[in-house]
Design a protein around this nucleic acid. Structure first.
Lengths: 191, 191
DNA sequence: CATAACATGTAATGAGTTACATGATTAA
DNA sequence: TTAATCATGTAACTCATTACATGTTATG
């Protein structure tokens, strides 16, 4: 239930339209709280109905574009919500289920999937590192910059951790596949 | 949509009743694919309707206890599913949203929440390490053990990574709170 | 004017969460 | 026989996802 508050924070940082927000979610807050434009429009309507934000139509723009901004009541709600405690989100990753399945069933050909997943994490890692180098290169100039840099570090460490773990998984699978069990599975065409 | 397959894997490892599974989910597969007993009963019924598992009532047991076991079709479905690829799950953590809110709004009193969250991760870390020491103490005796130990390592590294990150966040917040902005907020009673 | 791109929104589906409900067995 | 516990199951709600739908402005 954090999406309305994530939207409030994004609007606090900079006013914008629904699609503006959807695009910004794609490359900032969306890294740790993803949302589609449908969710964002729905919650923008709710936030406006609750009196936390206000909007006005933009006459010169195409589509029925509306500019949303945070009202004082919205800032007050944010100040109330930000320090609240809650449990951490449960870890839920199907790849761990698959690895456990591999453990239970024996070789099933999971290595190719692991390679793909490692590549995905490497791509994200490179993306985050590029942002870090571009926007947080030197010493943080403010408390807010230090916090935002830290959040980005969280993403970087997360990706790096997965890469490390999945490479170890590959070592287990591949040492096995080149070992005594090599004949249990057909060879892949490209290998 | 991995829960039915997680159930199949759990039943492959050992047959059991719905509540057996719910309990085992609480301390094994549930660490990376949590599920409540309601979800498990629902999917057990679906899996049985699909012909992947079978059950028989246990006359001597209390309640309408049923023992579920995997059918050959269920094993075949697992062999099909395990190596399938998919995107990694999106990272979605409200605490990162709160940290970003703290960055946008200034001090809001998030430190206490961070302490709680760090304690939660430390508790899980100790729990996972105890399991590791108990069940995976020496060199892995089999491929399956190596994989299961690796999955557990994933949980351990994840918790340790969060602890490290959140401690850095605390340093940023607390160095700030004892610095020039100390007078902006009331002191906490216990501090 | 036809088309593409922009901007907002609706509908259907499925999963997860929480609270509650039902039936059977053991134990006081 | 009453209460507690075990075991299974229903119901209502919210959220996320996907596909689709509507209207507007710029471009050729």
């Amino acid at each position: 239930m954090s999406l309305p508050h994530a939207i409030l924070i994004a609007l606090t940082e900079k006013s914008g339209s629904g699609l503006d927000l959807a695009r910004r979610f794609g490359k900032s807050i969306g890294y740790f709280w993803p949302a589609t434009h449908q969710q964002i429009y729905r919650d923008l309507a709710r936030l406006e109905a609750a009196g936390l934000i206000a909007s006005e139509a933009q006459p010169g723009a195409r589509g029925g574009k509306r500019l949303y901004r945070v009202l004082p009541a919205g800032l007050a709600e944010l100040r109330r919500w930000v320090p609240l405690g809650e449990d951490g989100p449960p870890l839920r990753d199907a790849l761990m289920v698959r690895l456990r399945g591999e453990a239970a069933l024996g070789p099933t050909g999971l290595a190719a999937t692991l390679h793909d997943r490692i590549a995905e994490h490497e791509r994200k890692l490179a993306e985050y590192r590029a942002i870090k180098a571009r926007d947080f290169g030197g010493a943080p100039s403010s408390r807010a910059d230090a916090l935002r840099g830290l959040i980005l570090d969280g993403g970087i460490r997360n990706e790096a951790g997965w890469i490390e773990l999945l490479r170890e998984a590959l070592r287990i699978l591949e040492s096995d596949e080149t070992g005594p069990e090599v004949l249990r599975r057909p060879l892949k065409p490209g290998a």
